[in-house]
């Protein structure tokens, strides 16, 4: 493989990794914009979805589609419950309350999973096929699935936010919650719809991550820092920003491997966050100016 071919391949990897990060960032950016806090349980919604997909597909005799479908429904339900039982009661509290509670929720979800299924890694029943080579660049069928998943998630988020009354209300609450309430928007309903959406998005991300990789208890948790970086880079509240941010972070991480080694690859997210917040805190596409 020539040097330039290697870098092109790394770019492809970065793109695919970045799309997964972007899907996680999408859920984070929506909750951040509407509910105004960084949701540290996002990763564990993804993990929960992956395990659910595995369990359901095993029960259905190996049907991945069935598994994914069940995962989407279950994750939406979990997110809705998290809102109804927990986050709703934190309305009006300072930011640190839902943030810290989301960490507690992350611990709770992850460890309830391992209580029942143990900690051994497992895989989804995805057939292993050879990659297609095009001029020295390798493409997996699974890469296309990830790209499709990301595109669908982004399209869904975008359409809901900008083309539906539900989304309009979400944006109103995100922009100015008091004004929205005064205009008659019932925050409780909007929030519930938000969390349902976020749950579904997390499920898509979790299932695709599981398909590409292995299912293990901390799979979603490990994505948290890059996903936050992507949401901040893209500008909190902007779904396209989450996509762009995710892809850029993914590319930066993978392309840095020959340069800084695999260990420091994980530091890329941190560096990006720091640089963005110092230089352009609203991110590439965001409108949030209240960083300082």
């Amino acid at each position: 493989m020539s040097h330039s071919q290697l870098y092109l391949n790394l770019a492809v990897n970065g793109l695919v990794e970045g799309l997964i990060i972007a899907m996680a960032a999408l859920g984070i950016t929506l909750v951040y914009a509407v509910a105004k806090f960084p949701n540290a349980a996002t990763g564990d919604f993804m993990t929960f979805s992956a395990y659910t997909a595995k369990g359901a597909s095993v029960l259905a005799g190996g049907s991945l589609v069935f598994g994914a479908g069940v995962a989407v429904l279950a994750s939406a339900l979990l997110a809705a419950l998290a809102y109804l039982l927990i986050f709703r009661r934190l309305a009006g509290r300072k930011l640190v309350a839902p943030l810290v509670v989301s960490i507690g929720l992350a611990f709770l979800i992850r460890n309830t999973l391992t209580f029942f299924v143990g900690t051994d890694p497992t895989v989804l029943p995805v057939p292993i096929v050879r990659a297609v080579e095009v001029g020295g660049i390798f493409l997996q069928p699974l890469d296309l699935a990830v790209a499709a998943g990301a595109a669908i998630s982004l399209a869904a988020a975008f359409i809901v936010l900008h083309k539906t009354p539900i989304g309009r209300r979400m944006r109103a609450v995100a922009g100015n919650a008091d004004l929205a309430r005064v205009s008659g928007i019932r925050a409780g309903r909007v929030m519930l719809q938000l969390w349902l959406l976020v749950g579904m998005l997390a499920a898509v991300a979790g299932v695709l991550l599981a398909a590409k990789s292995v299912i293990e208890p901390e799979m979603g948790w490990h994505l948290l820092l890059p996903a936050f970086a992507a949401a901040i880079l893209g500008g909190v509240g902007s779904p396209i920003g989450a996509l762009v941010g995710g892809v850029l972070i993914g590319l930066a991480q993978e392309l840095s491997v020959p340069l800084v080694g695999s260990t420091y690859k994980a530091a890329v997210g941190f560096v990006v966050i720091l640089v963005v917040l110092l230089v352009r805190p609203s991110g590439l596409l965001g409108r949030d100016r209240s960083v300082r």
Binding site: V101, G104, F115, G118
Partner: peptide, 24 residues
């Protein structure tokens, strides 16, 4: 042992949530 360790941490997570909700 895995289940016990999981229960331990799950309880810690739950304690955190409940503390923030009801006895901040």
């Amino acid at each position: 042992e895995t289940a016990l360790a999981s229960a331990r941490l799950a309880i810690v997570g739950l304690a955190l949530i409940l503390t923030m909700l009801y006895r901040p």
